[in-house]
Design a binder for these strands. Structure first.
Lengths: 106, 106
DNA sequence: CTGCATCCAGAAGGATACTG
DNA sequence: CAGTATCCTTCTGGATGCAG
């Protein structure tokens, strides 16, 4: 495949709207690797991300239906995040990105 | 495929470093559709992008080896942009993004 | 532990003018 | 036509502190 069909543009823009945001792809990647992660684990795994960005980006991903937030009524609180079905449909893109990254590193 | 191998992270981060920037994916997408575009055509196709953003993002893509800039010594000037070999290796990712966008629109 | 509120620096973005 | 430069406004992102 060397070109794209221009008619795909609406779908493309739609997809972009979900991953726009500096940290979205990193968060989705981590959840794709580990399936379920607590808030603090995400914070540690996504290096350099700040508190504020993690919570705001997670909230957007949740609103977009990409991520599922499961809260346990405990003290201290425990919240687990995982990819939704929709979020898992994104995994092939992550695989392609990894392949691309590996190719250009050689 | 339901999970990712964590060892892919370096490649993943490498790939992200190239597409970070609000307009990079849009620009690459247009060049993947049309193969060759003049500066003004890109400006028209990537809706909403400003003069300033287009030139700066194109310069970064060129420095990253994703895009080839061909300048014709004419008056008035003519400059054509196209994807490099490296840039064309990115096309599978665009296809996956389009598929994803199409799926979630249904 | 998880998440929100606040303040602030820096980046993004718009408009305009200028050059070869 | 294809940029660069400048000024200004808006908004994103970072640091910190507070709360349940």
């Amino acid at each position: 495949m060397t070109t794209l069909c221009p008619s795909t543009q609406p779908a493309f823009v739609q997809a972009l709207s979900i991953i726009e945001g500096k940290w979205k792809l990193r968060i989705i990647y981590e959840l794709a690797c580990k399936e379920v992660l607590r808030y603090g684990e995400l914070k540690n795994n996504v290096c350099e991300i700040t508190h504020k960005m993690l919570s705001s980006q997670l909230k957007e991903l949740e609103q977009d239906g990409m991520v599922i937030r499961k809260e346990y009524p405990q003290v201290p609180p425990k919240v687990e995040y995982s990819l939704s079905d929709k979020g898992r449909r994104f995994i092939p893109i992550l695989n392609e990105l990894c392949s691309f990254g590996a190719e250009i590193s050689m």
